[in-house]
């Protein structure tokens, strides 16, 4: 019984190795599971529990605290409309109503064709560019109903709408679950070494030896 694909299992092992305690990898692994499936399944949590030394109840307990994790299937594109104070002052609620009306779904729901899930959310961190919405956590600033309609058109036509976000984000807009499209990798020969805290209980070397000479390659 194994939920993660082979490739993701390798990624999972790499992620766990970056933490002094495997338990810390629960949230990153929940993201990985959501990336694989679009939402967090029961099997995913059971496997994450095994990998991190937790019980499935603990994994669900942690995961359910955080909004980004979905425990039921969602649409391919999750549309988050911010209605917090800065956006509210500049029409965020009206934007939300437009989104709901044009997709014919209430906040919290998914369109019948499974393409879009709409959520009303708290501050997405683009306050001076209010009102704004995100699609799979990609930003669309200073959005009005037309912007939203254009983004939906793009997505339905298979085009990337990211240029409309106007903040230098380019490429394709990934399906729900994928956040960063590129991952951190620490090459073995450059790794300082991640160890459990019990094994790192001495004063770090450089506190005694510093300052030491730096490379002749500095500019």
């Amino acid at each position: 019984m194994s939920f993660f694909t082979e490739a993701n299992a390798r990624t999972a092992a790499e992620v766990i190795a970056r933490y002094p305690r495997p338990r810390s990898a629960v949230i990153p692994l929940l993201h990985l599971a959501q990336e694989q499936e679009g939402w967090v399944t029961r099997d995913a949590m059971v496997e994450i529990a095994e990998l991190t030394g937790a019980t499935p109840a603990e994994v669900l307990g942690t995961g359910s605290f955080y909004e980004m994790f979905r425990f039921h299937p969602v649409g391919r594109y999750v549309v988050n409309v911010c209605t917090n104070i800065s956006c509210q002052l500049l029409g965020g609620e009206e934007l939300l109503h437009h989104v709901e009306e044009s997709l014919e779904v209430h906040a919290g729901g998914t369109t019948a064709d499974g393409m879009f899930t709409v959520e009303e959310v708290e501050c997405v961190a683009a306050c001076t560019e209010a009102p704004c919405f995100t699609v799979n956590y990609r930003y669309f600033h200073r959005a009005d109903p037309d912007t939203f309609d254009a983004v939906v058109d793009d997505l339905r036509a298979g085009r990337s709408p990211l240029a409309r976000g106007a903040q230098g984000d380019d490429g394709n807009l990934p399906a729900h679950g994928t956040l960063g499209r590129l991952r951190q990798h620490i090459p073995d020969d450059r790794r300082a070494g991640v160890v459990p805290p019990e094994q790192a209980d001495q004063e770090p070397v450089w506190l005694r030896t510093a300052p030491s000479t730096t490379s002749a390659a500095d500019a």
Binding site: R42, M45, T55, A57, E58, L60, G61, S64, F65
Partner: peptide
Amino acid sequence: DALIHFQGRGSDTEVNTFPDE
């Protein structure tokens, strides 16, 4: 036996088990 745990957040928090466990 950490088989019951807080789930959810805020005033909707509940104690529960993992489904079917």
